[in-house]
């Protein structure tokens, strides 16, 4: 960690809050939280979180950068939007949670092996290949993510479901061999790479 970052994480200073404002989707809202806790209480998965949203917001304002960004809390969000609906201060909490998760991953601070993050990566990689998601491959990648043996077990367990989906024309086995994509895949890839470069440059000064 650089000296710069040492300075930035001084307690109860705005540096981390400003970092969040600059880099996290809807991060500008964090300062508006009044710590009522209705989001924390409304989350259906709340009991599985180490830090509920309202606490995360207080931690951000208290400058607890490391603890926030390495937390798996925001990865638990299922986008049910209960918190957004109830927040008395209109914070788009769901978006902020996803924004924080994304930011933590970009910085490489997200907890290793976090399953939600693993799935997101598989989804992203799958999508990047053809410009749209190949559902068959996505499913298989997910089954085999923990190794070949586990993959076979997962596939067998879900075989019936797969057959039914094929029957119902909800899935096409031919997709396994390439599948269709968007018209100009390389153009799309270039666009996204450029966007990533810009984002990387922006967050570079925040380091890890």
């Amino acid at each position: 960690m650089s000296d710069l970052n040492q300075n930035m994480i001084e307690k109860y200073r705005n540096s981390f809050l400003k970092e969040v404002e600059a880099n996290v989707e809807e991060g500008e809202w964090v300062k508006m939280c009044m710590q009522c806790g209705v989001c924390s209480g409304s989350c259906p998965l709340g009991k599985h979180w180490a830090h509920p949203p309202q606490e995360i917001f207080m931690m951000i304002r208290a400058g607890q950068r490391e603890a926030v960004l390495s937390s798996d809390a925001m990865w638990m969000c299922t986008s049910c939007y209960n918190c957004i609906v109830r927040c008395p201060r209109e914070l788009p909490i769901t978006h902020i949670m996803h924004g924080l998760a994304h930011y933590a991953r970009r910085l490489g601070l997200a907890p290793k092996g976090q399953p939600t993050m693993a799935f997101a990566q598989i989804f992203w990689d799958n999508m990047m290949k053809a410009g749209r998601v190949n559902e068959l491959k996505l499913g298989l990648s997910l089954y085999y993510k923990d190794g070949f043996v586990q993959g076979i077990k997962n596939s067998l367990a879900n075989m019936k479901l797969g057959q039914n989906m094929i029957k119902a024309k909800r899935m096409n086995a031919v997709e396994f061999f390439g599948g269709h994509g968007v018209k100009d895949v390389s153009g799309l890839q270039k666009m996204i790479r450029k966007a990533q470069e810009l984002e990387d440059a922006r967050i570079a000064k925040y380091g890890k």
Binding site: Y12, N14, L17, K31, Q35, R61, A62, R89
Partner: peptide, 14 residues
């Protein structure tokens, strides 16, 4: 006025 303070990034800590 509480909101106005928050808008300016005043940190309120219980």
């Amino acid at each position: 006025f509480y909101r106005a303070g928050q808008q300016k990034m005043v940190t309120f800590s219980k």
